[in-house]
Design a protein around this nucleic acid. Sequence first.
DNA 1: GATGTTAGGTTAACGCCGTTCGTTTAACGA
DNA 2: TCGTTAAACGAACGGCGTTAACCTAACATC
Lengths: 212, 212
Amino acid sequence: MTRVEVAGGENVLSEEIVGVARDLIAEKGLAALSMRAIAERVGVSAPALYHYFDGKDALVARVVQTAFARFGEYMEHAMRSHPPGSFERVRALGEAYMTFALENLASFRVIFSIQVPHPRDLEDLPGGGGYPLLRRTVIEAMESGAMRPGDPDLASLYLWSMVHGLVTLVLACRVEGCQEGGSGTPSPQDLLRRFQPFLMNGLMVPTDSNEG
Amino acid sequence: MTRVEVAGGENVLSEEIVGVARDLIAEKGLAALSMRAIAERVGVSAPALYHYFDGKDALVARVVQTAFARFGEYMEHAMRSHPPGSFERVRALGEAYMTFALENLASFRVIFSIQVPHPRDLEDLPGGGGYPLLRRTVIEAMESGAMRPGDPDLASLYLWSMVHGLVTLVLACRVEGCQEGGSGTPSPQDLLRRFQPFLMNGLMVPTDSNEG
DNA sequence: GATGTTAGGTTAACGCCGTTCGTTTAACGA
DNA sequence: TCGTTAAACGAACGGCGTTAACCTAACATC
């Protein structure tokens, strides 16, 4: 085995295994992921993987954890290009959420696969799965007056649900097919932008009783 | 084989196969579904299933189709208990969506599994996957003045995304964990109810520039 | 009544899967 | 030099989806 040794690097092989697994998921889907395929691409026998991971599930869990870390970094970077306390910052988070999902399909699918038998605790994830970031941004927007004051958790979950639902529907269905009389086939990002008036002002005709 | 024959029934076995498959998905998850397990519970050998279905994927697709039909009926029934054109009717659709998802977890997971390699066309599904129902309800609400007039497809997709996202997040994470300072652990239905002010009036502080 | 034909099953088998077992090789500390 | 340990290997087990070949009962046709 003439494996290239990175100077000063430790546990290089286990990281390579995780990367190969992520790539294979991206190429063929999670369902088609096999330990033998991972091992072959790494250049090692399948049982060797069990020296680094307790099994396939543990390996996939590690891939998820890594993907979440990248996810959080991506969101944080996108947010920083807008002033604190602005609604623009909230909007940028939503757009980054969707862009990450579309550009890192494998990671996103692994992260939010609803096939996992036991739901994950958000707190166990690096960066809390991006939720604390969203929460902090919402609080700042409320304090600056850009958003209606209220329960920041409720508002955060509302925003999260909306963007996440749109992403999931776009991935699961041809949502463009729903836009029968629409102008062409809008991109998911377009849809999100067109959602903004709803997010800001709601779906109702404003009346005194509503605004009380 | 002393199989019970239903009087006048045809293709009973294929329907029984679909039902057993749905039950097994509910019990052990889609990932653990196996043709051999289905066959054993039906009381038949595994290759016999290939007389009725082209393979496992086709069988699962049939389970999905059946689940969608039940989904549509459920939604339609929930909607009918509220007057046409009312926002209550729109809200009832959302609640039915979430209740169905929680009570028919297996069906919902199969329906919206994002692991499918090729997205489905909504039009191919029975009842269009419930979307035409939502769209009609939204149009009626707009015409009656209960909702702000606008593109009904955009508003429908917005509502759909929000509810679907909340359901998906609830299923994928312990969303209750996000409510750190909340009052106990609200049920998903509670969360949806508390979203209603956001849906109606938005997240912004109403100003003249917003409402123009 | 003999004779295809077909529906609806059977068993055996192939190749792939996750995983375990026992073994081997190489590095290292005492 | 010896024992230990890390890190790999090949072989094998049981289960998977699927295919192939075969059987049997019902039924239409000559």
